[in-house]
Design a protein around this nucleic acid. Structure first.
Length: 432
DNA sequence: GTAGGGCTATAT
DNA sequence: ATATAGCCCTAC
């Protein structure tokens, strides 16, 4: 069994070699590597390797942009200027891509409509919206906001801002569009990434294993031994123990580093409790809960983070199917908490299904009785000033009514809000 | 997906 | 006690 630290050294070394990607992939799967923490050197190596892979496959994609964003958010971002340049170039390339002749006319042209020209424009508008009005606009906003709020804001450069303005002009001006195609070639983006990678790899320095090897060679030479000499191909016992010593010594250094990483990880967790929000787990499990007590059990858990509602209908009301009109008030409605129903602590096995976890009291949800239905209501959460400000800016930028789009633009900020929430909040904002 | 009416937890 | 903000419901 390979020690995880040793495995990390090996991987760190291998990732820097010009190995086939599929081989690297298999190595990653076979080595006992702990999930690299963002502050570990291996993390940077991994992202750089991913970027190199994009470059060698000559395939720039949103993933490339993401890699660059990750790199800029690492502590001590390397080669900042080259990184900014690469980001701007890749963003421009991805946007302009649909306008290039090569991307047009494919085999999907069979329909045979008239206007052969307009094909890429729609995709271009989408790309401008996606990349420049959302992604880059967010970076710019973060750069202006509280310093250090968003580390990736370091990607913002005058060049990037200028390119964004240019892209916005291009949306309404065909001449500008044509100019973009000429200027922002794919090759230009490749070149920018290449320059950055060269600097970044250089800045990263040799891998630990290479350093160890060099040190060993140095020691051997100091003793007058020639490593290349076939006569001394058998290392003496003394040399062997030196290597061990070297590895052990570095091992302690590495272990110390790991401890720091773990501390950082803990800090990160405590500062963002929503990262491991247990209630969402509870929700998902609730969705699987099957109970004979309930006639029906709907769980509308939207793709991911929002638990919309859970409706439980009691057996006895199967006859009373009629739903009250929206205008009818329900005098029996009241809000109760989980503890009111199940007592506290909750029974380990409240229904048939074992291992069912319920949302914690006061954590996220309430249970509302509405006529014959129980409705899980989302815990009321006040809008933060960041959410509010983001909504204002987004509406300014994208207009009223594009709630879904606005939510997609800021998935992390509006993590706990649905598009309906955004709409409701806007209604409140403009009411006063 | 969005608009708009309605309900209720929470702030005042 | 009242007003408001946040959330829910449903028609379209």
């Amino acid at each position: 069994m390979i020690d995880p630290d040793v495995a990390a050294w090996i991987l760190d070394f291998l990732l820097r070699q010009t190995l086939d990607d599929s081989l690297v992939h298999r190595l990653i799967l076979s080595l006992p590597i702990p999930a690299p923490s963002p502050s570990s050197p291996l993390h940077r190596t991994l992202i750089l390797r991913r970027l190199s892979s994009d470059l060698s496959r000559r395939s720039l994609s949103p993933r490339t942009l993401h890699s660059l964003e990750l790199l800029s958010s690492l502590p001590r971002p390397s080669s900042a200027a080259a990184l900014r340049a690469a980001y701007a170039a890749v963003a421009a390339d991805l946007t302009v891509k649909p306008l290039r002749p090569s991307s047009r006319g494919g085999d999907d042209d069979g329909g045979g409509g008239g206007g052969g020209e307009g094909g890429g424009e729609g995709e271009f508008y989408d790309a401008v919206n996606r990349i420049w009005n959302c992604r880059v606009a967010d970076l710019e906003a973060a750069a202006e906001g509280a310093e250090g709020a968003e580390a990736a804001a370091g990607l913002v450069s005058p060049e990037l801002r200028a390119t964004r303005r240019e892209m916005e002009e291009a949306v309404v001006d065909a001449t500008v569009r044509a100019g973009l195609v000429v200027r922002y070639t794919e090759e230009r983006a490749f070149q920018a990434v290449r320059v950055y990678l060269e600097e970044a790899w250089k800045e990263l320095g040799p891998s630990f294993l290479e350093l160890a090897a060099e040190a060993l060679i140095g020691m051997a030479k100091g003793k007058g031994l020639e490593m290349e000499n076939p006569n001394s191909s058998k290392p003496s016992p003394e040399e062997g123990s030196r290597l061990l010593e070297l590895v052990n010594h570095s091992g302690t250094v590495n272990k110390r580093g790991k401890e720091i990483i773990e501390e950082n990880t803990h800090e990160g967790e405590s500062s963002s409790p929503e990262l491991h929000d247990p209630s969402s787990v509870g929700w998902n499990r609730m969705g699987k809960c099957k109970s004979t007590n309930f006639r029906s059990f709907e769980n509308a858990n939207e793709s991911g983070n929002r638990c919309t509602k859970t409706i439980l209908k009691l057996d006895r009301d199967s006859a009373a199917e009629r739903r009250p009109s929206m205008m009818e008030r329900n005098p029996t409605a009241r809000t109760i908490e989980w503890d009111d129903l199940f007592g506290s602590p909750l029974p380990a096995n409240p229904v048939e299904e074992p291992h069912v976890s319920y949302p914690q009291k006061g954590k996220d949800s309430l249970l509302v009785k509405d006529n014959n239905q129980f409705i899980l209501r989302k815990r009321r959460k006040k809008w933060s000033s960041l959410e509010e400000e983001t909504l204002r800016k987004s509406v300014e930028r994208h207009g009223v009514g594009n709630w879904k789009f606005i939510k997609q633009c800021h998935p992390s900020i509006f993590k706990d809000r649905t598009e309906v929430d955004l709409k409701d909040k806007w209604r409140n904002l403009v009411r006063h």
